[in-house]
């Protein structure tokens, strides 16, 4: 059973979070191991597994990025956020150089602020792209697009995901490693 099936949802990316939470609570009340303390061992084990699956599914689906990652994995796409996506190479070259300066403690407060703004701007841009591509996935599914078209769209989605993940890692690296020049 995949995560979408756990919630009785189609494989679509627009999810009503309030409804998702409500179903999560209903299913938790049904399967939580707390209610199987006196049940036979096999049923207990099954309740733990089922609740784990439910929790894993909820954790993944409520997060817009993890949701995309998961959908892609269902169609055999693997994500790797460690490498710079080809399309980003030129764009992030300068940012990476500045980040090195910041991490080495050689940047001024103003330089750090400007870098933060640049990174944030990019992250917002890719978040938006990801959101739009997610919406158009749902449109494609709803319009009954051919399998070839769906596959092609997923490949595009995978690319945007790789880019936005890379920028998000960059942002994290920036936040944990920035010390202004003494």
């Amino acid at each position: 059973m995949d995560y979408f099936e756990v919630f009785g949802l189609p494989r679509m990316l627009g999810i009503d979070l309030a409804a998702l939470e409500k179903t999560f609570h209903q299913l938790s009340r049904k399967y939580h191991p707390d209610y199987f303390t006196t049940a036979p061992a096999a049923e207990k084990t099954q309740a733990v597994r089922m609740t784990a699956l439910l929790n894993d599914a909820y954790r993944t689906l409520r997060h817009p990025v993890h949701r995309v990652e998961y959908l892609l994995s269902l169609y055999g796409f693997k994500s790797d956020s460690s490498k710079v996506p080809q399309s980003l190479l030129m764009e992030v070259f300068e940012i990476n150089e500045q980040l090195e300066e910041v991490k080495a403690g050689r940047a001024s407060v103003e330089e750090i602020d400007s870098l933060r703004a640049q990174i944030q701007q990019k992250r917002q841009r890719f978040d938006k792209e990801l959101q739009q591509a997610s919406l158009s996935w749902d449109d494609l599914v709803n319009s009954g697009a051919t399998e070839a078209r769906l596959k092609a769209h997923l490949a595009g989605l995978a690319e945007i995901l790789a880019e936005s993940s890379y920028i998000r890692n960059l942002e994290r690296e920036f936040e944990t490693g920035s010390q202004p020049r003494a």
């Binding site: 191991p33 733990v48 597994r49 609740t51 784990a52 699956l53 929790n55 894993d56 909820y58 954790r59």
Partner: peptide, 8 residues
Amino acid sequence: NSTIPASA
């Protein structure tokens, strides 16, 4: 901070 039971 994953809700438990949780699995991977």
